[in-house]
Each structure stands twice: as structure tokens, then as C-alpha cells.
């Protein structure tokens, strides 16, 4: 009879130990359930400029209909309704941490590009979300202000400027045409030089010219 009692004692002891240890589990998840980027790592990432996309980059992605692009408009719903960029979703800045937005922001395969009027709140949204390790998020440098100045109202470079500047201007003008509802197939060279109506005009002339030539020939013969 002594043995069962001894056994029972050990049994109880082990039970108690298991319960106490399970208490330790409470502390385990608390320390690790929120996956966060450490502060020094975050600071390091801030030193790196790869999070920025220029308005030209964004314009290229839109025109090429990049399926991985998701523009995120951080302005108020009213502003978003008045004007938004093609295909953008509206997540007002104050709602950026709401879980309901994870359907967009947690999609790793999409390049989420934040934009607002300026780039300050986009950057702040980026920092907030990077801390909790959202992936593949970007900031549109300069925001819509830069968008207007670079894409919608590009300044023609002076003639002495480099070839690349001229090409950039041509690309921007082509992008502008695209965003203002011009034809989808963009042929920058066709559009940029205003004489390019010429090929079409030439066609008109083509039909006309033979007649003219005939007339002229007749006149000259009369001479």
C-alpha cells in the first residue's frame, strides 16, 4: 500500500510542475507574438533610398499596366473622389493601421506605392508599416505635387541640355498624353514633336498632289 501512495505523490508533484511550467508559456508569446523590425534595422532601412519611387517610375508602371502595381492613396476620401491616380485604392492615412486594409497591404506580391499631396505622410505610413514588417511598400517621392510638375506640366528643357534630358521630357509628354486620355499605344516620338501631324497631313497631300501635279504639268505645257 505504501507504493501506490508514493506513486501518487510523484504523480501529484509532476502534475504541479507541469502546471507551473505552463504558466511560463504565458510569458513566451508576449515577447514574440508581435513580429517587429528592430529599431536599428529600421533606421538602417531609412538610410537606404530604395523605398522611393519617382513619379516617372510610377508613370512607367501605370502605362505598362504592371499587374504588380498597387497605388495607395493616403488622402481623405473626399480628395480621393475628386481626383485619384489610375487604379489607386483609398486608404486614408489615419486608417493605415486598420486591419481591414490588410487585404491590400499584406499582399506581398503587389508593389504598394503610397502617395498623397506631398510625400511626408507617405513616408510616415511607410515607417509605421515597416516597423510591423509589411513587405514590398514604397513611397512616391514628391507626391501629387511632383506628379503635376513633372508629368502633367513638364518643363521643356533648353536645347543645350543633354540628350537624356530631352528624352525624359519626351517620355513625360507621352505619359501626359496617356493620362489625359490620349491613345493607349504611346509612341513618344510621334507625339512629342508637334510636326508629327505631318505624316497624316502628308497622306492628305498624297491624295491631292497627283491632281496638282497633273494641273501643273498642264500649265507648263501651255507655256
Amino acid at each position: 500500500m505504501s507504493k501506490p501512495f508514493h506513486i501518487r505523490k510523484r504523480y501529484l508533484f509532476l502534475m504541479a510542475l507541469a502546471i507551473i511550467l505552463s504558466g511560463g508559456l504565458i510569458f513566451l508569446p508576449e515577447a514574440s507574438n508581435t513580429k517587429e523590425l528592430s529599431a536599428d534595422q529600421l533606421l538602417l532601412e531609412l538610410d537606404d533610398n530604395t523605398r522611393f519611387m519617382t513619379v516617372d517610375d510610377v508613370a512607367d508602371l501605370i502605362i505598362n499596366q504592371d499587374p504588380a502595381l498597387l497605388l495607395v492613396d493616403l488622402r481623405s476620401p473626399e480628395e480621393y473622389e475628386q481626383f485619384s491616380m489610375e487604379g489607386a485604392v483609398n486608404i486614408p492615412f489615419e486608417d493605415i493601421l486598420n486591419e481591414e486594409n490588410d487585404q491590400y497591404l499584406k499582399r506581398v506580391e503587389l508593389q504598394k506605392v503610397f502617395y498623397a499631396n506631398n510625400d511626408e505622410i507617405s513616408e510616415q505610413a511607410w515607417v509605421l508599416l515597416r516597423r510591423v514588417e509589411y513587405q514590398n511598400i514604397f513611397v512616391m517621392k514628391g507626391g501629387l505635387t511632383e506628379w503635376v510638375e513633372m508629368i502633367m506640366k513638364p518643363v521643356k528643357p533648353l536645347e543645350q541640355y543633354s540628350q537624356t534630358d530631352q528624352e525624359l521630357y519626351n517620355r513625360r509628354m507621352a505619359a501626359r498624353r496617356y493620362f489625359a486620355g490620349g491613345s493607349v499605344e504611346i509612341q513618344p516620338d510621334v507625339f512629342v514633336k508637334k510636326q508629327k501631324p505631318a505624316p497624316v497631313a502628308a497622306k492628305k497631300k498624297v491624295k491631292v498632289i497627283p491632281k496638282k501635279v497633273v494641273e501643273e504639268v498642264e500649265e507648263e505645257e501651255g507655256c
Binding site: R75, E79, N117, N118, L144
Partner: peptide
């Protein structure tokens, strides 16, 4: 300007 709109986009 902070984040106020400078231009009238529409």
C-alpha cells in the same frame, strides 16, 4: 505646405 494640395488636379 505640409500635405495640403497645391494644385487643382481635376
Amino acid at each position: 505646405t505640409g500635405d495640403a494640395a497645391i494644385y487643382d488636379y481635376t
